[in-house]
């Protein structure tokens, strides 16, 4: 088992009073899965990702990664953010090498490795460009290259397509599936947060629905349709309808 959430709750202190954001999350995620976490705004989806990569510590329960309780930042995880999180004064190459140098690679090795992943995401030719010269889709490719370059086993993505226009988003989703399926890459498992159910059904093997206040896992749905999945197919619509209905019941 790659990852387990065991009775995980997150409680914040709000003006001296405890406020529970997530309650009793329990789930197990195996390697080689593409998992989407869906749910309404404010239900704790992004907090769940931050607990998984160790940026936050559970108030109750534990996150277990490869049979060991997580006690700090999970170095076998990398994160892709909704707003790209690029440093505007650095070029594409410098943005990608930054994380590698932070992990102890010398500049030469970091540049060589970054070049490989810049190429993987189709950004060859843009190495010297600054973020302001790039479209939203290109910026997110840089975010993806930066995450892949640290060769994580688990890739976490927090609404990575929600800042993009529909056509760019469609293209990047397809390319993400290609990257996930690439056996030459270290990344075997993706956990992606989204609030767009169609996006989850298009991409995921499994959709985890978090809802309520505090947020709880209210459904865990397997998506068994073969890929590529066509949005206009009957099976696709049936899956989307089923998740929408569950969400409506739980919210």
């Amino acid at each position: 088992m790659l990852l387990k959430l065991e009775n995980v709750s997150k409680i914040y202190d709000t003006d001296g009073r405890p406020s529970t954001i997530l309650a009793d999350l329990n789930c197990a995620i195996d390697s080689n899965q593409f998992v989407c976490i869906v749910g309404p705004s404010g239900c704790g989806k992004s907090t769940t990702l931050r607990l998984i990569n160790g940026l936050m510590v559970p108030s109750v329960g534990q996150v277990v990664f490869k049979d060991k309780p997580l006690t700090g930042i999970n170095m076998q995880c990398a994160m892709v953010f909704q707003n790209f999180a690029l440093l505007p004064w650095l070029t594409v190459m410098q943005n990608v090498t930054l994380g590698l140098e932070a992990r102890g690679l010398n500049a030469n090795d970091a540049t060589k490795k970054a070049a490989v992943y810049i190429d993987k995401v189709g950004l060859d030719g843009f190495e010297s460009a600054y973020p302001r010269e790039l479209s939203g889709g290109m910026k997110q490719r840089v975010g993806l290259a930066r995450a892949l370059a640290v060769e994580p086993e688990l890739l976490l993505m927090d609404e990575p397509f929600s800042s993009l226009d529909p056509l760019t988003s469609i293209n990047l989703r397809e390319e993400l599936l290609d990257i996930w399926a690439d056996a030459n890459l270290a990344v075997s498992t993706v956990i992606m947060v989204t609030h767009i159910i169609e996006e989850a059904v298009e991409l995921a093997d499994r959709v985890i629905l978090i809802a309520g206040r505090p947020g709880r896992i209210v459904a865990d749905i397997e998506v068994t349709m073969p890929r590529p999945r066509h949005k206009n197919s009957e099976a696709f619509t049936r899956h989307v309808d089923a998740i929408f209905s569950l969400m409506a019941e739980c919210c």
Binding site: S135, G137, P166, L167, I170, N171, H230
Partner: peptide
Amino acid sequence: AGLSKVLGLLEILDDH
């Protein structure tokens, strides 16, 4: 036009 959008257009046209 960005070429990513061109590729996205092809994907959606294929869906149709």
